[in-house]
């Protein structure tokens, strides 16, 4: 399975957010999409899942532009719907609405949903809503999964368990995983490929190992060093 973006352009009110983005993603791998705030990561994600229409270019799945969006699930940064339902009722609703739902007890446990499953969503914290969003994205059981800042708002233990879950179960299912994240230091083992987005363009991409070799003299270690050398920016911070 191959997902390709070809010269994707997206504008809002005359401002170009994505300026000819091209990329290829393959099943069984995990891709990291990096970029500073406003680089166009979330817009690109929304275009990839069909929430936003592209102004030019195309999004192709296995050589076809039709039914691309049916094959992609996205974990949004938060979950705001059904405020007066209990969290377990929301999960139950989506389980019933999805014929081929992937209900993972392991993920339920990792995200600690048992401890707040009776809570109404309106009373849930940011981290708890994020956990619901992650669980539902997996529940939809699509071959392509796009996670938007999955580690933010989760406590350290949940982050580590989620990393392990992503590494093991996702690769066993041969899914394509695309992750937008500023937090990379502790999760580098997860990523196979890296795309760096700056001002609406892909400014660097490649296999993580090859990029690490290419930028081996970077002043910062690992992926953060690659990002710093390419953009002159510190991940989640200011420029040099």
């Amino acid at each position: 399975m191959q997902l390709s973006l070809q010269d994707v352009v997206k504008q809002y009110n005359g401002t170009t957010i994505l300026n000819g983005v091209s990329a290829s993603f393959y099943a069984g791998h995990c891709y990291l999409l990096l970029g500073q705030n406003g680089a166009g990561k979330s817009t690109l994600a929304k275009c990839m899942v069909g929430d936003e229409k592209v102004d030019a270019g195309s999004i192709i799945l296995n050589g076809s532009t039709s039914q691309v969006f049916d094959e992609i699930a996205m974990q949004y940064q938060t979950f705001e719907s059904y405020k007066h339902l209990r969290i377990r009722e929301i999960i139950q609703l989506f389980k019933i609405l999805t014929e081929n739902a992937y209900y993972s007890e392991e993920l339920y446990e990792i995200l600690g949903i048992h401890s707040y499953e009776r809570m109404l969503l309106k009373n849930a914290s940011g981290g708890q809503r994020k956990a619901v969003s992650i669980f539902l994205a997996f529940l939809l059981n699509k071959p392509i999964l796009l996670l938007d800042e999955p580690f933010a708002d989760l406590d350290l233990m949940k982050k580590k368990k989620l990393l392990y879950f992503l590494q093991t179960s996702m690769q066993q299912q041969n899914k394509l995983l695309i992750i937008i994240s500023h937090e990379v230091a502790e999760f580098e083992a997860l990523f196979d490929y890296i795309y760096i987005l700056d001002k609406g363009k892909i400014v660097e991409h490649g296999k993580k190992d090859e990029l690490q070799q290419k930028y081996k003299h970077a002043v910062l270690p690992g992926i953060e060093g690659i990002y710093f050398d390419v953009t002159g920016q510190v991940l989640g911070g200011r420029g040099a």
Binding site: V49, D51, D70, I72, A73, M74, Y76, F79, E80, S81, Y82, F94, L97, T98, E99, L136, L140, K142
Partner: peptide, 16 residues
């Protein structure tokens, strides 16, 4: 509220 909270972004990926 369904529209404002983008609930259909989720629903359209189910079989409903």
């Amino acid at each position: 509220d369904l529209k404002a909270e983008r609930t259909f972004n989720w629903i359209q990926r189910t079989d409903a």
